[in-house]
Amino acid sequence: MRTIDVDRSLCDNHGQCAIAAPEVFRMNTDGVLEYEPTFDDALLDEVEEAIDVCPVQAIFLKD
């Protein structure tokens, strides 16, 4: 398992992460990000892409 953290002071709810890695990130009906703080290693590529496409670089991959 891997862990991520989203810095809510940076997150601007663009929703790009929910496109790149929908198993981990989703936008609720208020347009606010909800996410799974831990995810399976098999999803690492998708999560790295979500980190890349975040316009404000709010997503951090933990060790």
Partner: peptide
């Protein structure tokens, strides 16, 4: 000026 879930829907 719509929430991001709307953008995902139209996408």
């Amino acid at each position: 000026a719509l929430p991001a879930d709307k953008q995902l829907h139209y996408r």
